[in-house]
Each structure stands twice: as C-alpha cells, then as structure tokens.
C-alpha cells in the first residue's frame, strides 16, 4: 500500500468515526461513541502498519522547527494566561470571590500546573537528547 492509498483510507476511517460518534452523541450513547473511536484507532494502526511510509530528513527538520516554534509560543502564552487568571483572585477585591469569577482561580491553578508540566517535559526531553547526542561531557 502506498502513501496515497493510506491517506485515502485514513480519510474514510475518520469520516466513519465522525459519523458514528455523531450518532452516538445524538442518541446519547457514550458507549457507541467510545467503541467507534477505539475501532477507528485500531483500523488506523492496522492500515498504517501495512503502509510503507517514508519520513525523510526534511520532514523531520520541519517537525522539529514546528515543535520548537509551538513551544516558544505556547509556553509564554499559557504562562501569561495563568498570571492574568490568578491576579484578580489574589487582588483581594470582593467581586472576584463570588459568582462566575470564583472559577478563575481554579482555572488559573490548572493552567499553572499545565505550564509546569510543559516546561518539565521540555526540560526532561532536552536533557535526554543532550545526553544522547553527546552533550554530557563524556570522556
């Protein structure tokens, strides 16, 4: 199976999952939606294993750069977002401790942990790849 056939089959599978999930949501059947997603994933894995996919070095470079820029944009954005969500609840104003604003602090905390997780993941993967590519001052 070549890459074009794989892409066509993938589109068919995704449409199939979409339809079944929609039916599941309309009929209020989460089991149906869940089964559709699991079946679709299994089919995608099966089809992918039968396909000879060449991921060449240019593609890898593009992925690296895309991941790098995504991190460079997403990390500060979510960090600043966290800050903006936590500031009102810490300001001491009564308006932020009741009504719909009460959730801002919780949301801010979730974002804060998400930011920490993202940065930790980056640091761990950086450390791992730095060692892998000989940046650990090995003799």
């Amino acid at each position: 199976m070549n890459i074009k056939q794989y892409q066509q089959i993938r589109v068919v599978i995704v449409i199939f999952i979409g339809i079944i999930v929609s039916i599941g949501v309309v009929k209020n059947s989460l089991v149906l939606a869940f089964l559709a997603v699991i079946t679709g994933m299994l089919f995608l894995i099966l089809v992918r294993s039968k396909t000879k996919i060449t991921i060449d070095e240019r593609e890898k470079t593009i992925r690296e750069k895309a991941a790098n820029i995504t991190y460079a944009i997403f990390a500060p954005t979510i960090g600043i977002g966290t800050f903006l969500l936590l500031i009102p609840s810490r300001s001491g104003l009564a308006v932020f401790s009741k009504g719909e604003f009460i959730y801002l602090e919780s949301l801010g905390m979730i974002f804060a942990y998400l930011t920490l997780f993202l940065i930790s993941l980056y640091a761990i993967s950086y450390y791992f790849y730095n060692r892998k590519f000989g940046g650990a001052n090995e003799k």
């Binding site: 060449t54 060449d56 070095e57 240019r58 593609e59 470079t61």
Partner: peptide, 19 residues
Amino acid sequence: MEVSRQTIIAIESNKYLPS
C-alpha cells in the same frame, strides 16, 4: 536516496540543505 520527491525539489531549489 530513500527520501521524498519534495526533498529533492527543495535541495535543487536551494531551499533545503541536506544532511
């Protein structure tokens, strides 16, 4: 070369430096 045709095009047009 076991790469994609796009890679050859990119190298030929000096848009990508190969490894």
